[in-house]
Nucleic acid binder design. Structure first.
Length: 477
RNA sequence: GGCCCCAUCGUCUAUCGGCUAGGACAUCAGGUUUUCAUCCUGAAAAGCGGGGUUCGAUUCCCCGUGGGGUCACCA
């Protein structure tokens, strides 16, 4: 059987990592059977609509390497793929269901509804619509409509019985219909609610597997009822676990960075992000930690999806990003790094500098901080310079060092190292102190790439200048 | 609160009744090294509690506890 899956983002904000996460599973499942992965835009909420949100999703997909078969910016056999352009379709089915008595008009004002909820809250009775308008006679309905009163269409839910489905991830899930209230299907503005549109569209678009978050489980009965009333075969439902914040609550942008594009800006590689998120709630059949998107798409399956909601902890992403950075070819790394190089980065020295810092990169954005002292004169903190020796000794060491290095003809790491080592041995300097002092004098930092290679790249003249100002600093101390 | 879902190291997870409970990240220790990082080695670290079922339960069932989700004319 060819699987048809879909992702149905709502263009109301930033492109969310959860959307990418879900899409990856959808895509893989569809691709394995040569089926189709569909992008449908659920833009029925006009109040929260944000024009740029949709294009950001496409940019995020492009960056991550996610492609799809229908919908989105493409088209397809089931166009249109924007719900706002399918209003007449929903309207037709709504009319049909209303005529059949499965949907009924409700004229309750939002004030009355609010009052009702408050009372329920206060009395501790089960929440939900009380079904007042169910009792309306045909005459009353016609009269109200003729009077131009605004109304919504509600789903007439049986007051007894159970409804259940076999979830592909969780097994049997069942609800007592007595607890399900009559949800709104068509809003007073004529737009469908999510519940209504999703059922119509999934059916018409021939979706076979509906992957969605655990948060949707409780609305399952409404959807199933619609399938029943429409006499349609429901798709296979797979409720994925909810990705969580550190406090176990549903992943939110308030408590986490959930914007896909912000990971790009922070210098993460898309392949690392993909690898990382795919390991949330799912594990590779061979227990692999690092694997490509292509491999994931081939081996992904619902039976390895966990039921527990994973916490979105990006520590592992940091590690992974480093792994991916180090596995890049020189050319590839260059391509990725270019957008992160500061304006004053000496491009002619790129190939001398970058190999010295590659294994220290956690993100691509780290490149500036790790390389700045190569091309910017550093501020040298006196306390670091004199950490393990007093000012007079350091000044003495620097003086001799300047003299020695000044005589170096071929400014190469090996030669620099030989001179410095011999100087240190001659005067019996404490090796760690001596080397660290030089490191600080030249770079302003205690943490740098190998000292002599670094000095070679910085250049003789700049090194001597830095040593001289450090000497003055030591003397003044 | 009603309903629903869930429950293995700090985190991501393996285990589909036999476990001395495995791996990865993070942490700590050691090695390599002029520092940091990389890399290598090692350590510490988990089955929420109580009942069943069974020769045997982390694995199956029930109860409790805990956590989460949902109860909108938002998705």
């Amino acid at each position: 059987m060819k699987r048809r899956t879909r992702i149905a983002p709502s263009p109301t904000g930033i492109a969310h990592v959860g959307t990418a996460w879900m899409s990856l599973f959808d895509w893989g499942l569809a691709q394995q059977t040569d089926g189709a992965f569909v992008v449908r835009i659920e833009d029925t909420d006009r109040r929260r609509f944000i024009a740029e949100a949709e294009s950001e999703i496409y940019r995020a997909f492009e960056w991550l390497g996610i492609t799809y078969d229908e919908g989105g910016q493409k088209s397809g056999p089931h166009a249109p793929y924007h719900q706002s352009k399918r209003l007449d379709i929903y309207q037709n089915y709504a009319t049909q269901l209303e005529e059949e008595g499965h949907l009924y008009p409700c004229f309750c004002s939002s004030d009355r509804l609010k009052e009702m909820r408050d009372t329920q809250q206060k009395n501790g009775t089960p929440p939900g619509y009380d079904g007042l308008c169910r009792a309306l006679t045909q005459e009353e309905i016609i009269a109200n409509k003729d009077a131009g009163e605004s109304y919504v269409l509600r789903l007439k839910t049986p007051t007894a019985g159970t409804i259940s489905w076999n979830d592909a991830i969780r097994g049997q899930i069942s609800f007592d219909l007595a607890h399900i209230d009559d949800a709104v299907m068509i809003k007073s503005d004529g737009f469908p609610t999510y519940h209504f549109a999703v059922v119509i569209d999934d059916h018409l678009m021939e979706i076979t597997h509906v992957l969605r978050g655990e948060e949707w489980i409780s609305s399952g009965p409404k959807h199933l009822l619609l399938y029943r009333y429409l006499e349609w075969e429901p798709p296979i439902f797979a409720h994925m676990p909810l990705i969580r914040n550190a406090d176990k609550s549903k992943l939110s942008k308030r408590k986490n960075d959930v914007s896909i594009m912000s990971y790009k800006e922070k210098g993460y590689l898309p392949e690392a992000l993909v690898n990382f998120i795919v390991l949330l709630g799912w594990s590779h059949p061979e227990g692999k930690e690092i694997f490509s998107l292509e491999e994931f798409l081939k081996v992904v399956s619902l039976d390895r999806v966990q039921t527990t909601g994973p916490i979105f902890d990006t520590k592992k992403l940091d590690w992974m990003n480093g792994q991916y950075i180090r596995s890049l070819s020189k050319e590839e790394l260059h391509t990725r790094l270019v957008p992160f190089l500061p304006r004053d980065f000496p491009l002619d020295q790129y190939h001398a500098i970058i190999p010295l810092v590659t294994e220290r990169l956690v993100t691509l954005a780290d490149v500036e901080g790790l390389t700045a002292f190569f091309y910017r004169t550093p501020e040298v903190p006196a306390n670091l310079l004199l950490k393990r020796a007093d000012g007079s000794l350091v000044a003495e060491q620097l003086k001799l060092l300047i003299t020695t290095l000044d005589q170096v003809g071929t400014w190469e790491a090996a030669e620099i190292e030989r001179r410095i080592r011999s100087l240190g041995e001659t005067h019996n300097y404490h090796k760690k102190q001596f080397f660290m002092m030089i490191r600080v004098a030249v770079t302003g930092s205690t943490q740098t790439p190998p000292l002599f290679e670094t000095m070679e790249v910085i250049g003789k003249q700049a090194v001597l200048e830095r040593l001289q100002s450090a000497q003055q600093l030591a003397q003044a101390a």
